[in-house]
Every structure is written in C-alpha cells, then in structure tokens.
C-alpha cells in the first residue's frame, strides 16, 4: 500500500517527484489495476505520483500527420472520439470492449500499454496500427514503437519509477485501408478474452496491398502475425488465401492451457477462426 499520494500539476513536477523518491515512487494515472495491486500488497511502490491533474494530457488530436492520444485519454474517450472512430476504427472498437463505464471513464489507453498485459484490448489494436509511444524522463523525450515497450507478461520496458509515457501516436488509416477487431471471451464482458485479433488491411484491385494483423493474448505479449501478413500481401483476395494466412497466424501463437479460458488447442483454433473472421469482415465491411 502507498504511504503518500502526490498530485503534481506539471510534468516537470511529476518527474522531480519521481527523482526525489527514487525507486519508491511510481506514476499512477487511471490506476485501474495499480490501485488494486497496491491495496493487495502486490505493488512495491510506496509513493504514488498521480498525473491526472497534468494539463493537456487528455487530448486526442491530429498532429504532424499522426493521430496522437494523450496519456490521460481514457478508453471511453478513445472509443467515442469521432477522430478515432473515423480514422482508426480498430482502436475505437477495441477500446469499446473494455469494461463498463466505471472502467472506461478512468482507465487510460496509455496505462493499458504500460501495464503490458497481453489481454489488453486497446494494446492489440495499437500493435496493428504500428503505434509509437512518447517516453519522457529527466533526460528528455523519445518516441518508441509500442511493440518495444513489451518485455513479457505484465513487464514493460518503461520504468514507471523514473519515466512516463505521455502520448501515443500512429498514422491514421488511409483511404484504401480498412480495419477490424474481433474478440472472443468466455463471458461477453468483464472477462479476460480467449483470443483477440486486430487487423488493418489495404486492398486494391482485388489484391492485398498491406496487411497488419495483431493477436492477443496467446503469447506473453501481443504480437504481429508477420508470416500471415507476408502471406497476404500481393495475393488475390480469396477464401483460400485468407484461410492460409489464418493458419499461419495460429502457427505463431503460443497460448497456454487455461482451466477457465480454454485449452491450448482450442485457443489455437480460435486464433485461426478470428483472423479469418477479421479478414472477411474487412472484405465485406
């Protein structure tokens, strides 16, 4: 449990607080998972640096040719943002699945990434969008591919004790691009998914021009089904091509047997089924 709960009002102040309580303090935003972890004694940090009062971080805007989402933007905001819905639908769809309003109103998309759980809906969509994260520490700012933030189940390469992610960005979908998000869970809502698939696809003249397929939570981190993607590009849009790609995506998954979410075999089959469905969705939708 934390001993102190600090509420800085500027980014500099937040970083200074982290530095002052070096190693003991960590950033908290929505706190959806962190508060509970801390209450249950599963978070060693004793100082919480609450960034929810930092100005300007809740923006969702187009900047420098990117769609940019601030660190305080919640799943609710992302799911209902006209900008995201129109130009990166896959992310709006994914965020729409997350929890009820009590979570959507609080949980931030950035927090979802920093948490590094493979089951996070939003993160899977970000993988498909080739998103980047802006990391800020006392030494400065840098943009890193979101995929590089993942080190394993719940392990993020960003150390929330010294730095924070202030924004996410990605290119909006182009005119010829379409996206889809598919999710299978043992209960429609409020349950960890069995498999999730996010896809961004471009089709021209009956052929796949581009394909980005992200899959979760069937490996320690969400992952891009690169072999499936490669199998699609340049190929005609046919059921056979799609089936082949779906099988390749499943071949790259490494789900565990789960007593509550299904056997490894079933989950592999479902990767295939959901990739197939996402691709068909894109074709028809």
């Amino acid at each position: 449990m934390w001993r102190a709960y600090l509420t800085p009002t500027t980014l500099e102040e937040a970083l200074a607080m982290l530095a002052e309580h070096r190693g003991e303090a960590r950033i908290i935003a929505g706190g959806t998972d962190l508060v509970l972890q801390s209450q249950q004694g599963k978070c060693p940090s004793t100082v919480m640096v609450d960034i929810t009062r930092l100005p300007g971080l809740d923006q969702i805007a187009e900047r420098d040719g990117y769609l940019q989402i601030g660190a305080l933007a919640t799943h609710g905001q992302v799911a209902s943002s006209p900008l995201i819905r129109e130009r990166a639908e896959v992310l709006a769809l994914a965020c729409g699945w997350v929890g009820g309003p009590q979570i959507r109103n609080v949980a931030t998309l950035v927090g979802n990434v920093v948490n590094a759980l493979p089951a996070a809906d939003g993160a899977v969509a970000l993988f498909a969008l080739d998103a980047e994260a802006e990391v800020v520490n006392l030494r400065g700012r840098r943009w890193l591919p979101v995929a590089e933030l993942y080190r394993g189940v719940g392990l993020c390469t960003i150390d929330s004790c010294v730095e924070l992610v202030t924004a996410l960005r990605f290119r909006a979908l182009g005119p010829g691009q379409r996206s889809a998000y598919e999710r299978l869970a043992p209960r429609r809502v409020l349950a960890l998914p069995i498999v999730t698939v996010a896809a961004v696809i471009e089709i021209a003249e009956g052929r796949f021009v581009e394909a980005r397929i992200a899959v979760g939570p069937v490996a320690p981190t969400p992952f891009r089904a690169v072999r499936a993607e490669a199998a699609l590009v340049g190929q005609p849009v046919t059921a056979e091509v799609i089936a082949q790609a779906a099988a390749l995506a499943a071949a790259d998954a490494q789900p565990r047997d789960s007593a509550t979410r299904g056997s490894r075999e079933y989950r592999l089959d479902m990767v295939e089924a959901l990739v197939r469905r996402a691709l068909s969705q894109v074709m028809t939708g």
Partner: peptide, 27 residues
C-alpha cells in the same frame, strides 16, 4: 468485492460513474 469486479460501490465523481473501492480517496 473490494476489488473492482462487482460495481456495488459505484458512485458518481464529477459526473462520471466510478468504482469507489479502487478509487484512491486522495484523488
């Protein structure tokens, strides 16, 4: 439940529903 799963603790903060059991009082 005290762990964010049931919604029984829902209150409204600044116009939005939140789960008060996992909402830091300090916030």
């Amino acid at each position: 439940c005290g762990e964010g799963h049931c919604g029984a603790c829902t209150v409204i903060v600044d116009g939005r529903a939140v789960r008060s059991c996992v909402y830091p009082a300090a916030r």
